[in-house]
């Protein structure tokens, strides 16, 4: 009985993550367009793109690992969603979160990129691997401040359970209690969300190099869907860790939207760092802020 409930829950959670992931992606394209002085595509465009890619008649395959790569990536992204509670103190929309904890979720977040990297490596395109290398190198920089913030929270709450960290914030959100930790986590979060100045160039844009070089048709569709779901998972994690979680779906939407929109605005202001520059920056400024924050925990 419990299992069936969890399965219904999971399906609903994945639909929500997929829907909001693409909705926010559409909003991002719109807002960026307005900043550039364009109108941008309609909100529905990102959904249309996703479905269109799955119905493309042809796509190129490079053997079975090319199939498995994006599938492992999608598994990683969906698992991340299912192990983060959507709502606090509720019986539903919590998926498998009681069987995992924050450390498990942090590791799931790397499973997706690994699957992607395996798929990209198997196609033999040097430009794809160039993107992967940039991404993984940047990850070294991104994870340091993020881990400092997360460790600070885990030590302050003496637990690694996300639900516990959320319920400890019932009086005051962590964003107010530990502002320095939030700042260092937020700077990393910009990079995790693929926003400037820490983004890695994607293949279809400007420069012809990046993780998605060889993906076409349904492969690209899957890659795009998993990245939408994954970006919602990251929003969810930040909301749970620093913004006190959410009691109802409405509050969840508002909180993730606020977080998302601030990431988009910051991302639109700054130009992109090179990979080396972003690692150099990340191991200095946000790390230092995080360490000061950690001292006060």
């Amino acid at each position: 009985m419990i299992l069936i409930n969890i399965i219904y829950d999971s399906i609903f959670m994945l639909f929500l993550a997929y829907g909001f992931g693409f909705l926010y992606y559409g909003l991002y394209r719109n807002i960026s367009a307005r900043v550039h002085g364009r109108f941008g595509p309609s909100l529905a465009q990102s959904f249309i793109d996703s479905i269109k890619l799955f119905t493309k008649k042809n796509s190129t395959s490079f053997g079975w690992m090319f199939y498995l790569g994006p599938i492992i990536a999608a598994t990683g992204a969906t698992m991340t969603v299912l192990f983060i509670p959507f709502l606090s103190d509720k019986e539903y929309l919590n998926g498998f979160s009681e069987y995992g904890n924050l450390i498990v979720v942090l590791y799931f977040m790397v499973l997706g990129p690994l699957g992607n990297a395996l798929g990209i490596g198997s196609n033999g395109n040097p430009f794809g691997v160039m993107g992967v290398t940039r991404g993984l190198t940047r990850l070294i920089g991104l994870e340091l401040p993020f881990y400092i913030a997360v460790i600070g929270l885990m030590i302050a709450n003496e637990t690694a359970s996300i639900a516990q960290i959320v319920s400890n914030q019932s009086e005051q959100m962590n964003i107010i209690t530990y502002p320095l930790l939030f700042i260092s986590a937020f700077i990393s979060f910009l990079g995790f969300m693929g926003k400037s100045p820490f983004d890695v160039v994607g293949a279809p844009q400007e420069v012809y190099s990046g993780p998605a070089s060889e993906f076409s048709g349904k492969f690209f569709g899957l890659a795009l869907s998993q990245s939408a779901i994954f970006s919602f998972a990251k929003l969810l994690l930040m909301v749970n860790l620093f913004m006190g979680g959410a009691d109802s779906l409405m509050i969840l939407v508002v909180k993730t939207f606020i977080l998302f929109i601030s990431a988009v605005f910051v991302g639109n202001i700054y130009a992109r760092f090179t990979t080396i520059q972003s690692v150099e920056f990340l191991v200095r400024v946000p790390t230092l802020i995080g360490l000061i924050g950690l001292y006060y925990v």
């Binding site: 799955f54 119905t55 493309k56 008649k57 042809n58 796509s59 190129t60 395959s61 490079f62 053997g63 199939y67 994006p70 599938i71 492992i72 999608a74 598994t75 969906t78 698992m79 299912l82 048709g217 349904k218 492969f219 899957l222």
Partner: peptide, 19 residues
């Protein structure tokens, strides 16, 4: 999840041409 995604993905009937 891996099996479900695999099943869904493989059930999409589009041709993937092997290079």
């Amino acid at each position: 999840l891996f099996m479900i995604i695999l099943a869904i993905f493989m059930s999409i009937k589009n041709k993937a041409i092997k290079n």
